[in-house]
Design a binder for these strands. Structure first.
Lengths: 163, 163
DNA sequence: TTTGCAAATGTTATAATGTTGCAAATTTTC
DNA sequence: GAAAATTTGCAACATTATAACATTTGCAAA
């Protein structure tokens, strides 16, 4: 299996979500973190979407669930999930995606299609290395690396080659 | 002169702002863009700060100027300045910095000190190349590359080495 | 088993950031 | 100088995020 994620290749979405949840449970158990029902539900929603989901999108679905949640509930769940590397925040979209390399406490690189909205998370060692070297050259100590690339995914490029 | 910007090395700040404004005027003239008083003032404020400045920070200073501006005034000016490569938006901070490589329509890489708040803009060809290759490998067509690295700058590292 | 504490959640309000839409003024072009 | 296009003013509103404080829950020590 490749390190790359979902949008481009077809896959069994339910199974993929179930797998992500199972991984999350394992990770939390191992690290003595409580994946409470709300947190798990938020993670599930984010995975089900597969496109970046805003905090208020999550909130809206929780409301449909009958869960009478307020913004802090969602933001707290998201903070927790980020802390344990289960979701990533896409700063350029103010939105969240499920992490496809959960439990590694890494910084991914995101390919964001401006047409279909899908996001692909990559681990690119060459990029990480180049970034780290560039920072070192300035005596800067990196802690959190955000790389977000907006553009066109292969599918959308094929559909609209002349954009 | 190095390609790197301001925070780390001492410099004559007034001269540096004046230079940025002069460059901006030249770039706009050359491209038939109108660097109106409001736009120029916003650019000046952003340069004077040298730390990322939020739209509402700009708005507050304009208010002190006696300029009775509303948010759209500032956002429009910022859009214009971004469009002509005169400022960059730092997505992870919701804030703006003066571009130190104005007029190139490039995507910089930003080193953001979480302690002092200073931002250093770099042009790192190796990083750009690695990113571009990683995207190509996924058949993704990049259009806008955002690289923001939070961490500790050399000065703050020296002051608090054990964070 | 209860008591005590820390973690998690609920609740209300509010702050911070960003946009839409339309009218008025200004600048450019013809 | 009139028409067209760009820029600005302005009011309202939309979206995203946090503060502050009360309450509940899970878990462990007495």
């Amino acid at each position: 299996m490749s390190t790359s994620a979902l949008p481009y290749r077809p896959h069994n979405h339910d199974a993929c979500v179930a797998q992500a949840l199972a991984d999350a449970r394992a990770i939390c158990q191992q690290r003595n973190a409580r994946l409470t029902p709300t947190r798990e539900r938020v993670l599930e929603l984010i995975w089900q979407s597969h496109k970046p989901l805003g905090a208020y999108d999550v909130l809206a679905v929780l409301a449909e669930d009958g869960h009478n949640a307020a913004p802090p509930t969602v933001y707290r769940a998201l903070d927790f999930l980020q802390q344990y590397g289960l979701v990533h925040r896409i700063a350029s979209l103010n939105a969240f995606v499920g992490c496809t390399h959960a439990g590694k406490h890494h910084n991914g690189m995101f390919l964001i299609c401006r047409s279909c909205g899908n996001v692909l998370e990559l681990t690119a060692p060459d990029v990480a290395k180049a970034v780290s070297q560039a920072a070192s050259a300035e005596a800067f100590q990196p802690e959190d690396v955000m790389i977000e690339i907006a553009g066109l995914c292969p599918a959308c490029r094929a559909n609209a080659p002349h954009d």
